[in-house]
Design a protein around this nucleic acid. Sequence first.
DNA 1: TTCGGACTCCCGTTCAACGGGAGTTCGCTC
DNA 2: GAGCGAACTCCCGTTGAACGGGAGTCCGAA
Lengths: 249, 249
Amino acid sequence: MANSPTGDSVTDRLVRVLETFTPTRTVQTAAEIGRRAGLPSSTAHRVVGDLVAAGLLDRDGDGRVSVGLRLWALATRSSHALRMRQAALPAMERVQARVREHTQLAILEQDEALFLERLSHPEAGANITRIAGRLPLHAASSGLVLLAFADRAVQERVLTRPLRRLTAATPTDPATVRRTLAEVRRLGHVIAPGYVDVVSTGVAVPVRDAAGRATAALSVVLPREAPTALALEELRGAARAVERALGAG
Amino acid sequence: MANSPTGDSVTDRLVRVLETFTPTRTVQTAAEIGRRAGLPSSTAHRVVGDLVAAGLLDRDGDGRVSVGLRLWALATRSSHALRMRQAALPAMERVQARVREHTQLAILEQDEALFLERLSHPEAGANITRIAGRLPLHAASSGLVLLAFADRAVQERVLTRPLRRLTAATPTDPATVRRTLAEVRRLGHVIAPGYVDVVSTGVAVPVRDAAGRATAALSVVLPREAPTALALEELRGAARAVERALGAG
DNA sequence: TTCGGACTCCCGTTCAACGGGAGTTCGCTC
DNA sequence: GAGCGAACTCCCGTTGAACGGGAGTCCGAA
């Protein structure tokens, strides 16, 4: 029946189906989903029907479906993301007001940096990241602090896999990244010029828990050659504020 | 096998499991989940294990589990909630800066008002609603505008079911609510004194689509006897801004 | 009118999920 | 430290729900 050799439970497939949706592809037909998830047509239609019935997908006027609000409502029961966001927002607003550039909050998820929140500044330039967007840990400034203060196991896993190059400046040599991580641990911050986007520099600091691990990263995206001192100072203060808020909450 | 008589697919059960989590109960043991979802012990443990493997639940140090970040990441592929939130946030920030009270964004979901976002004001009092929280449509000011500009079918469904009383002031007579809805349609806003919480008054306006239906509601929570004129004016402006942003986006 | 794609329905096959039950671990109480 | 209960894991025979090939419908484009 299942032609796929490795573990393919109903739950796995559900996740696969949901993952066919991306920020730029938010509505699809059942047939498209089936093709992308590798399901036979009749199965795809049945599964999509089930998910619509359960409210995890919404069917619009025509046959097209999108990820359902129900799922959003269920997901917000995720205490971690929500609590982190709540704890960080006030501090992020302060940073953004002073630095007047994009201010971001990211966490480590599935060996990538997942951006939970972003405050944009109208005067600031364009920005690649978006809420719920992801970037590789070795490239984004947020990712580097997350990685620097993560479990050794995560570091090994990430560094033994090929490191994707986003720009000419992206470090893709594991040894280089290792040196950067050591430096990050020493300084408590990272400055990543052009790693993600040639015209901008990311500045990031960790939000750490009692055990010293980074539970999140706060970052600011500056123009490539802009001074970083103010951003760094603000981020440090914000990180401490978030740590206090998490401890208190 | 399935002892439950009515439709009980794997997907349904997955949703039931996730729904055992609430904003105040964000971590549970597998056994607790099983009890609350009405599953036999061995099944509960197996199912929870599967969900953890799929990343939809996270297991912490001990045996306890919480809703996984993975789910959050999947859910944010829900274009509707995310786009609405993005479109509304700037306008909400303006309202909050001027009115200096809790400012909220809600949408209609599963015949309830689902709060997508809330900006709290430190000077403002306590507030019942929370992000991802829900309130009945006939009680919350947001709910009333959502209901007033919703499909007739939704209105009938809601009004033919018993209307829950939250405070002495909550309207629970369908005829009264109908009159209120007509009024809301005429005025384009609603003022709900004490319906949800005796000490506060909700003021809400609809964000409408091209067809005139409410796609969301913006609201402000004021102290019970506070003047509402400023809030109303700000909300109206904000709603128009959100409508423009949605149209442009 | 034909063609192709999206979708629905049907139905025989089959295997993965089911859950009872036994066993293990842990922490608490007396 | 014996006894107890709860949480959890593992095993395994049963079975019915999910599977998916295939045929049929609908619709729009060529």
